[in-house]
């Protein structure tokens, strides 16, 4: 599937984050985050808002605001991503590492057709004619099961439903066949039935492309469906890490337990620990 010849042996993690620390003038937002994601695997990054999960993803993409300072390392196929020039990061962004954002309506430019916006991502990295890129866009839309993809490339974002818009975002992420896909709450803004469809689609896409995936969410139910490994973050710190099975069947940390308790389940049991009140009312 992939066209990146320089890829190391498959055992090496696609993304390896070590002691990542992100500091803003007003304080530390991520304090020593470490995790690996292998090919075809999904890491679920869980935590409430303000826990630093989105900042972690922006650091990997090189999209942090200027006033942020980072230390530690984030290696992609062994190459350091932090502190790279914007020009060099730009070649990686959208090509080898793609990102899917939370709110697909505001994340798409209302003035351009979805086909144009997907094709633009393709042309930025692979070049070629506009017509060829448009065909790639239609292919990508077809792959994410947008009905009549060839006909809908010329439509504008507001002409799609919420779920279809998120499929457009996923098509945009897929068009260059990246090795790492970062989903920053990609299902949060969608209603529950659409959420399930999008999760299925993401799982399917990953199966197909064998891309590594970093899946950021505050929703443990979502994480349980999609992740192989889970990292739980709180106030910038990693409170627990393990395989999805470990975390869900045998959480070691009180905060994780509280998060789990806050997740409504059909087989709800009575003696789960009380939720911990969060600091400062966040």
């Amino acid at each position: 599937m992939s066209a990146h010849p320089s890829r190391p042996a498959s055992d090496a993690p696609v993304l390896s984050v070590r002691d990542l620390r992100i500091e803003f003038p007003l304080g530390i937002v991520v304090d020593g985050s470490s995790f690996d994601i292998a090919r075809g695997q999904t890491m679920g990054l869980v935590g409430e808002s303000g826990s630093g999960k989105s900042m972690t993803s922006l650091a990997i993409m090189g999209l942090l605001p200027k006033e942020a300072t980072t230390t530690g390392s984030a290696r992609f196929h062994g190459d350091e991503l932090l502190h790279r020039s914007d020009a060099s990061m730009r070649r990686t962004r959208g090509d080898q590492i793609a990102m899917i954002f939370q709110d697909p309506l505001s994340s798409l430019n209302p003035y351009y057709t979805v086909g144009f916006q997907i094709a633009e991502a393709y042309r930025a990295h692979k070049g070629g004619t506009k017509a060829a890129a448009m065909r790639k866009a239609a292919e990508a839309m077809d792959r994410v099961r947008i009905p009549d993809a060839a006909g809908r490339v010329g439509h504008y974002p507001h002409q799609f439903s919420g779920g279809m818009r998120q499929r457009v975002m996923i098509a945009m992420a897929l068009v260059c066949e990246p090795d790492l896909i970062i989903g920053d709450e990609p299902t949060t803004a969608l209603d529950v039935t659409v959420q399930a469809q999008i999760l299925d689609l993401l799982a399917e896409v990953q199966e197909m492309t064998q891309a590594a995936m970093l899946f950021i969410t505050h929703d443990l139910a979502v994480v349980s469906q999609i992740s192989d490994h889970v990292t739980v973050m709180r106030f910038g710190q990693t409170v627990e890490q393990g395989t999805a099975e470990q975390i869900f069947s045998n959480p070691g940390n009180d905060y994780t337990k509280a998060l789990l308790a806050a997740t409504p389940r059909l087989d709800d049991v009575v003696d789960l620990p009380e939720p911990i009140l969060t600091k400062g009312g966040r």
Partner: peptide, 24 residues
């Protein structure tokens, strides 16, 4: 948000500003 998307695609600064920023 769409400006962030444009950057995440790997577009250059001028393409982000001129194509995505100026039209709206």
């Amino acid at each position: 948000n769409f400006m962030r998307t444009a950057r995440a695609k790997g577009l250059g600064r001028s393409a982000v500003l001129i194509r995505h920023g100026l039209r709206p």
